[in-house]
Simulated assay, not measured.
Amino acid sequence: MPRSPARQRATGRVTLADVALAAGVSPITVSRALRGERAVDPVLVERVQAAAQKLGYVPDPAARALASKRSTHVAVLIPMLSNELFVSLLEAAQARLRAAGYQTLIGITHYDPSEEEQLLREQLMHRPAGLLVTGFDRTEATRRLITQSGVPVVHMMENSRVEGIHSVGFSQTEAAITMTRHLLERGYRRIAFAAAQLDPRTLQRQQGWRQALEAAGLYDPALEWMNPAPSSMALGGRLFQQIMGQSPAVDAVFFCNDDLAQGALLAANRLQLPVPARVAIAGFNDLTGSDLMLPTLSTVHTPLATIGDEAAGMLLKLMRGEPVEQPCVVLDYRLVVRMST
């Protein structure tokens, strides 16, 4: 009994030629049929698809990119996947790219510029069609890699108006100013700022908080609580307990993100400290669960999914060689006032 074409290869991998032999057509016809080109006879398309399904054929994207000199991969570098913030952004970007026929190569940098550099070197070996990167904090070597690769790149979460730079984000500093002014308008005067991770965007929020307090003549360095540890609800609870032991007492705490703020609210309940009667608590990013806390958490709603979608759309234009009318897209944030302030 003759062996099937799929089993005649030493590697065991089903190839385009195997499908062509099984369908009784040329390899180029198989390629065109599987790409959905209209010029191929529908009868042949059906025959090719049946053969491919029977043999379990999976196209080799690397070989296709080499043959066509066009990759279908986009490299995406984000700091974390354990944080809902970047999950929302990534899902939106991936949905936009997949709809256009692109796959994502995801790299997690853990807020480490040297790790980002290594990930980028590895991903460039796959000849991606484009890059989505988070922010602007990276090594000089990484910047050179991006420039010398010639691969289109869009920066997410932060903005730059430097010519030749494409970015989609919002003003972290202005958003923090807005929240701090809200607390000031509510009558709070000893407003602490508590932060973890201390990545560039967190520091921009710190800057906004400081600017607002300086303008009100209320800035005090003793109100800054900066912890480089990874952000978590548990850390938020510990920071809150430490802050509440401070003298003179604080009457509000602005946390750099909702993870910390949610942990602080839980700690306040354990310590039987009424919020906001004794101390107001505010967060940032409006993550899942903030509207379910007791009391509900005041925060800043940030356009995470929109950033992912808009950045992917901008990158698609760059990869297609289309003009980008607005290379710096500054999105709106929204103050969400709930019961905690």
Results as ranks from 00 to 15, higher is better:
204 Q>P: 00
282 A>C: 15
233 M>Y: 02
281 I>A: 08
189 R>C: 01
173 T>L: 13
242 Q>S: 13
179 M>Q: 15
179 M>K: 12
222 A>Y: 04
280 A>H: 06
246 Q>W: 07
273 L>G: 01
247 S>Q: 15
243 I>D: 10
269 N>M: 10
174 E>C: 00
224 E>V: 01
237 G>E: 05
217 G>W: 01
254 F>A: 14
233 M>Q: 13
257 N>V: 07
269 N>R: 15
214 E>M: 12
177 I>E: 14
208 G>K: 11
207 Q>K: 13
165 I>N: 01
263 G>Y: 10
235 L>R: 11
218 L>V: 03
281 I>W: 10
230 P>L: 11
258 D>F: 14
182 H>E: 11
219 Y>F: 15
222 A>K: 14
170 F>M: 12
164 G>S: 03
182 H>C: 04
203 L>Q: 12
260 L>M: 09
257 N>S: 14
269 N>I: 01
207 Q>C: 08
226 M>P: 01
192 A>E: 05
190 R>V: 00
265 L>D: 10
274 P>H: 12
281 I>D: 06
195 A>K: 09
234 A>N: 06
280 A>N: 05
245 G>V: 03
196 A>M: 06
204 Q>G: 02
228 P>R: 12
177 I>S: 07
243 I>L: 12
222 A>W: 04
266 L>Q: 15
250 V>Q: 14
271 L>C: 06
278 R>K: 13
189 R>F: 00
248 P>G: 06
229 A>F: 03
267 A>I: 03
171 S>M: 05
192 A>K: 04
176 A>W: 05
186 R>G: 11
237 G>I: 04
192 A>V: 02
176 A>R: 10
205 R>G: 09
280 A>C: 03
170 F>L: 11
165 I>G: 00
241 Q>V: 01
204 Q>N: 06
227 N>L: 04
174 E>Y: 08
211 Q>R: 13
282 A>G: 15
236 G>D: 05
273 L>H: 08
172 Q>P: 03
260 L>D: 08
232 S>I: 03
190 R>L: 04
184 L>I: 02
181 R>P: 00
269 N>S: 12
194 A>I: 03
172 Q>N: 15
183 L>G: 11
201 R>I: 02
272 Q>E: 13
194 A>W: 00
179 M>H: 11
215 A>E: 14
220 D>S: 07
236 G>L: 05
248 P>V: 01
271 L>G: 07
184 L>N: 07
276 P>S: 09
265 L>T: 07
260 L>H: 12
240 F>S: 04
